[in-house]
C-alpha cells in the first residue's frame, strides 16, 4: 500500500459545504428514485463493481485511512436520519465533510476509542447494483448489508440502500458522495463503526 493511502491529509477549511452543495446532495435523492439507463456499458459496470468491492474490503480489513483517501477532497459521507427531509435543516445520523470524515477515522484508530476495543469485525455485502453514467463518472445505487461483530459482544446488522457519486480522476476513482439510508433510520442504533 503506498504511503499516500495510509496518511490522512491535515484538516482544511470547510468552504464547499454551502447551499449549492446541499442542493446537489438533495438532488441525489430525487435521482435515486428514477430508473437507470438500460445500456450502461459492461466495462463500466465491471469497473464500478470492482471499486465498490475494493472500498468494502478496505473497511472490512480495518484500513480506515486508505478507505478515507478513496473520498474526493470535497466529499460528503452521509447517513440520513430522515431521508424525506432536507438535510440542510435537519439533523442526520452523520453528515461528514472531508474534515469531519478524517476526524472520525482518526478517533476510530485511537487506542482509546473504547467502543473499538476489541476492534469490531466488519463484513460488507453488496448487491442490487444500478449504474447511471455521468460525465467522467457514475452514480451508483446498491443494497448493502454490514455485519458488525465485536468479540464477546452482540453482533449488529445494518441494512441500507447506498448511493455513490463516483468520479474518475488522475489518481483513480474517487467518492464525491456516499449516502447510506438505513432501513431503520428512524430507530435507535447501536453506533456503527463505518458503513
Amino acid at each position: 500500500m503506498p504511503a499516500r493511502d495510509t496518511v490522512l491529509a491535515p484538516p482544511s477549511a470547510s468552504t464547499y459545504v454551502n447551499d449549492a452543495l446541499y442542493a446537489r446532495v438533495m438532488e441525489e435523492l430525487r435521482w435515486a428514485a428514477e430508473a437507470p439507463p438500460a445500456n450502461a456499458a459492461a466495462t463500466l459496470r465491471r469497473t464500478i463493481e470492482g471499486f465498490l468491492h475494493y472500498e468494502a474490503r478496505l473497511l472490512d480489513q480495518g484500513q480506515f485511512e486508505a478507505w478515507a483517501n478513496l473520498f474526493a477532497p470535497e466529499c460528503i459521507y452521509w447517513a440520513p436520519a430522515n431521508p424525506a427531509a432536507d438535510v440542510r435543516n435537519n439533523v442526520a445520523i452523520f453528515f461528514d465533510d472531508r474534515r469531519r470524515l478524517d476526524d472520525r477515522v482518526t478517533r476510530l484508530l485511537s487506542s482509546y476509542a473504547h467502543n473499538q476495543a476489541p476492534r469490531p469485525r466488519l463484513r460488507h455485502l453488496i448487491s442490487n447494483i444500478e449504474i447511471w453514467p455521468i460525465e467522467n463518472g457514475a452514480r451508483v445505487l446498491s443494497s448493502q448489508i454490514v455485519h458488525q461483530h465485536r468479540s464477546g459482544r452482540h453482533s449488529v446488522v445494518y441494512v441500507s440502500g447506498v448511493g455513490h457519486t463516483l468520479r474518475k480522476t488522475d489518481e483513480g476513482w474517487r467518492i464525491e458522495l456516499k449516502r447510506i439510508t438505513l432501513v431503520n433510520f428512524d430507530e435507535a442504533l447501536e453506533p456503527p463503526t463505518l458503513l
Binding site: 446541499y22 453528515f95 469531519r100
Partner: peptide, 23 residues
C-alpha cells in the same frame, strides 16, 4: 446559524456519546 446547528448537533453523539454508551 440554524444550518450549522444541525452539523454541530451531529458532533457529540458520533464522537463522544459512543464512548459514554460503551462505559
Amino acid at each position: 446559524v440554524n444550518v450549522l446547528r444541525m452539523r454541530i448537533a451531529e458532533d457529540f453523539p458520533n464522537f463522544g456519546e459512543v464512548d459514554d454508551m460503551e462505559m
